[in-house]
């Protein structure tokens, strides 16, 4: 063990699949290549919210799912999931502290599929206005704003609501080619949020949802980047379908 080069040792945040059982490390350097998670899906661990369900949901469809805050592991991933629940500021600060902001930005620019969930979706935009004014990852122009006061409904928007292709008609192909492909119009998803996604470009709206008379984007995306305001990993078997198709995109 002691004679192995440092680089041989897997970071502790790697998934079990890559960690050899204690005492079984093969000393042959060529094995190193086999241990590299070349096609792994990395759930970014940045200290906010529940990653358990996302992990469990993705593992249904992909064998190589790891949770990591290690920039090297994130760089080697074939796809990234930015989970999260909580405040915008805490989210960006969680990424910054771990030196991950540029990692995620670069991954997105390089064409790697990125799925943002809830807070993770909000961080994909340029700015957030929760407890102040904060810079986001900026994959899409636009900002995250508080739910305007609704006449007959409460905020947070918490519970099951349906998703629809945008009424504006800017998506003639519907959800084809996105992880939502094949889902029924009006599929029910679990939402829990007080802030909403406001991308500047209406073409970045993949699905929308209506609550208290307000219609807002519930899925946004551009190219390899997609963000769901709801929790696909909490939306029963219907939501898992989105994770399945994201995994297939990443393969």
């Amino acid at each position: 063990m002691a004679s192995l080069p440092d680089t041989f040792l897997a970071p502790k945040t790697w998934g079990q699949a890559y960690l050899p059982a204690s005492g079984q490390v093969c000393p042959l350097p060529s094995i190193k290549l086999l241990l590299l998670p070349m096609s792994s899906i990395v759930i970014i661990d940045y200290g906010v919210g529940n990653i358990h369900s996302a992990m469990k949901g993705l593992k249904r469809f992909a064998s190589d799912v790891v949770l990591s805050e290690d920039p090297a592991v994130i760089r080697a991933a074939s796809a990234l999931v930015l989970p999260g629940q909580g405040a915008f500021e805490a989210g960006m600060e969680g990424l910054r502290k771990r030196g991950l902001i540029d990692e995620v930005k670069n991954a997105g620019k390089s064409g790697k599929p990125i799925l943002g969930i809830c807070l993770g979706a909000q961080l994909l935009l340029e700015r957030g206005h929760e407890f102040g004014d904060w810079e986001g990852l900026g994959f899409m122009q636009g900002e995250v704003v508080r739910f305007p006061a609704l006449k007959n409904e409460k905020t947070p928007h918490m519970g099951w609501n349906s998703i629809h292709t945008p009424a504006a008609g800017l998506r003639p192909a519907g959800w084809k080619g996105t992880p939502l492909e094949g889902l029924k119009e009006g599929s029910e998803m679990y939402f829990i949020h007080s802030y909403i996604l406001q991308p500047k470009n209406p073409e970045h709206v993949i699905a929308e949802t209506t609550y208290g008379g307000l219609t807002f984007p519930s899925v946004i995306g551009t190219g390899n980047i997609i963000g769901c305001q709801f929790h696909p990993e909490k939306s029963g078997e219907t939501g898992l379908q989105i994770l399945k198709q994201f995994v297939e995109m990443a393969a």
């Binding site: 906010v48 529940n50 405040a87 805490a90 929760e130 829990i192």
Partner: peptide, 28 residues
């Protein structure tokens, strides 16, 4: 694996836990 947490006993004596928790995790 929780999405939300329910607070009762401690917060009745230390309400500031609620504001701290909301700041950190969001009110939802």
């Amino acid at each position: 694996g929780a999405d939300k947490v329910a607070i009762n006993t401690y917060a009745t004596r230390h309400p500031e836990l609620i504001s701290e928790a909301v700041k950190q995790f969001g009110s939802q």
